[in-house]
């Protein structure tokens, strides 16, 4: 079973909560996917407010899931740290999905600020889930800062392109074999999710791919099945590709009779 900061998690599908047609559809999708962890942003939602948990958040709490607040929309260390601290007050959890955006158009993470913010938050008692790239050195720095989970992208946020550099994902997996790796961004289809799970990744976080699908509830289910399939396959030692055909039954004139 997957363990994140000492907590056993049975579902390997983490769900974002933005951009659904309605909270009711989000609730049905989360239940259909069997999601145990949902991530919520609050940078804009509580800006200038009292920090009071509004109607939308009580619908999330109805789901009986672990809430993973995130710092989406933060562009600096200071903003991200402050948002994390507010999130801790609002949701009563030390978990924080740390996002520090470096480029406002592609939403690429600012890995320098990310490492700095991670260090500050870990020292402040947070359990940090950093949204990062597939860079090995950044991964090391985040682990040095005290992160015990990494959330690399596999393509830019919302791009729906799927794993664009499988070799990089593979080498990151090999580099940190004992750290839970959750693919955080860039997944478009269930086959993409299955592909990264086959590489030995531990879980997948989805938002747009489910929320913006024509039928988010059915898509949530499809992803849950694909993630489960990919995870089973990773443990079942899949065949590696070969350059030539290798028939599964002997062919006359070859091998056995030659």
């Amino acid at each position: 079973m997957l363990e994140l900061y000492g907590r056993a998690i049975s579902s390997r599908l983490l769900l974002g909560t933005a951009n659904y047609p309605s909270p009711a559809v989000l609730q049905r999708a989360a239940r259909e996917a069997g999601a145990q962890i949902v991530t919520v942003s609050l940078r804009r939602e509580i800006a200038g407010g009292s920090g009071r948990v509004g109607g939308f958040w009580s619908l999330i709490c109805d789901l009986d899931v672990q809430v993973l607040p995130n710092t989406a929309g933060c562009h600096s260390v200071k903003e991200a740290v402050l948002t994390a601290q507010m999130a801790r007050e609002v949701f009563g959890t030390n978990w924080i999905k740390l996002e520090v955006i470096g480029h406002h158009d592609t939403l690429q993470p600012d890995v320098f600020a990310l490492v700095e913010a991670a260090r500050i938050l870990v020292d402040d008692g947070f359990e940090v889930f950093p949204y990062t790239t597939d860079d090995l050195v950044v991964a090391d720095r985040l682990l040095d800062a005290g992160c015990r989970v990494l959330m690399p992208w596999c393509a830019p946020i919302g791009s729906a392109r799927g794993p664009v550099d499988k070799d990089a994902l593979r080498s990151l997996r090999a580099h940190v074999p004992d750290i839970p790796l959750i693919v955080d961004a860039g997944i478009g289809r269930p086959s993409h999710a299955a592909a990264v799970m086959e590489l030995g990744y531990d879980a997948v976080l989805l938002n747009t791919a489910v929320a913006a699908a024509g039928d988010p509830v059915a898509m949530a289910k499809a992803f849950a099945l694909a993630i489960e399939a990919g995870h089973l396959a990773a443990g079942a030692q899949p065949l590696e590709p070969r350059d030539v055909a290798v028939p599964s039954t002997p062919v006359i004139g070859k091998a056995v009779f030659s």
């Binding site: 804009r44 939602e45 509580i46 200038g48 407010g49 509004g54 109607g55 939308f56």
Partner: peptide, 13 residues
């Protein structure tokens, strides 16, 4: 469309 019931002034963003 922001999930908030705050009616305060428009934000810069």
């Amino acid at each position: 469309m922001i999930e908030s019931s705050r009616a305060g002034p428009v934000t810069v963003r």
